[in-house]
Computed example of a mutant assay.
Amino acid sequence: METSIQQMYGFQLCEYLLIIEPTDPVQKQIRAFKQYFIRSCRYPNAIVSKGHITLMKFVQYDSYEKPIIREFQRLAAGIMPFDITLQGFGNFGHTLFVDVKSTGPIRELVTLRRRELRSLLRAEGFDPYFVTKPHVTIARNLTPTQTETIWPIWNRTRYCGSFRARQMVLLKRPVGSRAYSVVDKFNFLGLIPRFTQGKLFA
């Protein structure tokens, strides 16, 4: 009944991604890894989208978009820009990725308001996902045989890159579609939250 009411008023169920995008030099390196994967492995599993670190993934009606944007703006305003270090490669069995070594600031960003955000980001039947292992995907949906074939090579491949994270980006796509579009970008401002100021001067 709830879904039909939402549809009646033109509300659309969408998939959302909150991400951090590496800067251009690192993006070029990640793109080169994806292209190398396609050429060398000849598997159609490389992700052709821009490299990114997923922070949160959730499904919600777009009617909730404005309050979600406001919450992410408040969250970003209290975060200082921080350095992210990428080093080496890892795999989840089905996914090949560039490993993120400096996970502390990312985990803090994700967990800072996790409990408060969950109810806002959760649509009935869809629980929000919060990253536990930050990474940049190179290829996914690998079979066990494919992983066994490629991992000895990628495990020996050395790579180290870094960039300064200055913002996070919210993407969305209607459920069932493929292409994401940018909803908004949230700059890390490093401002002291108002409730903290109140405590300091109380």
Rank of each mutant, 00 (worst) to 15 (best):
A76W: 01
R118F: 09
P22D: 12
L96R: 05
T54W: 11
P25H: 09
R114W: 03
I47F: 03
E124Q: 12
V98K: 00
I68W: 06
E65M: 03
L121V: 03
G78Y: 00
T103S: 04
R118K: 13
F82Q: 01
L55V: 06
F92A: 09
R42F: 11
P67M: 04
Q87Y: 05
I68G: 02
L120D: 06
L112A: 06
A123K: 06
F58A: 08
L112Y: 00
R39I: 01
K34Y: 11
D99F: 05
N45Y: 08
K101R: 15
R39Y: 08
R114D: 04
L75R: 01
R39P: 00
G90K: 06
A32V: 06
Q35F: 05
P105T: 00
R118T: 11
Q27E: 12
S119Y: 14
F82E: 02
E65Y: 03
K28W: 06
P105V: 03
R113E: 03
K57E: 15
P25Q: 15
E124A: 10
N91P: 01
M80R: 11
E21P: 02
I38E: 11
R70V: 00
T95M: 05
F89T: 09
T111D: 11
H52N: 10
K101G: 08
G78K: 07
K34L: 06
K50F: 05
T54H: 05
F37E: 05
L86S: 04
S119A: 14
P22G: 07
K34T: 10
R74I: 01
